[in-house]
């Protein structure tokens, strides 16, 4: 365990070393919130309806606020680090350490995210409670939200890690990496709640991992599901984590053989 705490610490230190980037998000994150606030305000006023696709205006604002908070937990750029390490053969430095590569990557990024979570996600949550009519959910919903959020974090990491592993075969994965962010953002409900999508889209989404990254945790908080459905959805989320972890594991074994076979 001490190993991984050490890795988290070093990730945290790297995040601080890049504090400029950190300050930029400190400014850009509230801007997107303000934009969505006024956009939906005018939509609700224009249409004159109280509830749009199951959302009242206050809930809609809460949705984007939680979306912002969840965003600090669900991001990863591990594939960019991996691509570089693989292409230039620098992965050797990690392979020479007595740690499992997957966990070392995971905890390193956890350290990277920690700064944003502590200094931004939590304050934004409090700001929401105080200024944006964000309702404090019931403790059951909060419990589901938190568990689902942690799983969402792992899910996002796994997807990025798997994309990163493809660099063993493709060398350059910049395109894939660039496409990843907007695609996941859209499919996970980061742009617009998935209830606004056609029914077929929503049905397909249930069987894809993406909605479990943003839409499901947020809906848990907002109390959009019955207890039974929450358990089912959480189970599906767990299954996705296990599936992707297995895939990553199999890919890594093949990749290591390829890497170690070709000679770094």
């Amino acid at each position: 365990m001490r190993k991984y705490v050490g890795i988290i610490k070093s990730g945290f230190k790297v995040a601080i070393a890049y504090r400029f980037e950190f300050f930029v998000t400190l400014i850009t994150a509230p801007i997107s919130l303000i934009v969505f606030y006024f956009l939906w305000k005018s939509i609700f006023e224009y249409t004159g309806v109280g509830i749009l696709q199951g959302f009242t205006f206050t809930e809609m604002v809460s949705y984007y606020l939680l979306n912002l908070v969840v965003g600090f937990f669900t991001w990863s750029r591990i594939e960019r680090w991996m691509e570089e390490d693989i292409r230039y053969g620098h992965m050797i430095k990690d392979l020479l350490k007595p740690v499992n590569y997957f966990f070392q990557a995971f905890y390193f990024e956890l350290g990277l995210s920690a700064l944003g979570i502590v200094v931004q996600a939590i304050p934004f949550f409090i700001i929401g409670l105080v200024f944006f009519d964000l309702v404090m959910a019931s403790w059951i919903n909060i419990a589901f939200f938190v568990v689902s959020l942690l799983l969402a974090h792992i899910l996002y990491f796994l997807i990025s890690y798997i994309i990163g592993l493809t660099a063993f075969w493709f060398q350059r994965i910049e395109g894939l990496s660039r496409a990843k962010k907007p695609i996941i953002h859209f499919l996970s409900g980061g742009l617009i709640p998935l209830t606004f999508m056609p029914l077929m889209f929503q049905d397909i989404s249930k069987f894809l991992p993406f909605q479990y990254i943003r839409f499901i945790p947020i809906s848990f908080y907002l109390g959009k599901y019955e207890l039974n459905s929450m358990f089912t959805l959480l189970a599906i989320q767990v299954i996705w984590v296990l599936l992707l972890y297995t895939l990553a594991h199999v890919m890594w074994n093949n990749a290591f053989k390829k890497f170690a076979g070709a000679g770094a």
């Binding site: 001490r2 190993k3 705490v5 050490g6 890795i7 610490k9 070093s10 230190k13 790297v14 070393a17 890049y18 620098h90 430095k93 020479l96 350490k97 007595p98 740690v99």
Partner: peptide, 19 residues
Amino acid sequence: PQLVWDLPPIDSYHLNKDI
């Protein structure tokens, strides 16, 4: 490269201490 690129070596040493 074998040190954490963005950190001073002393931080890499502390990382190794834990690992």
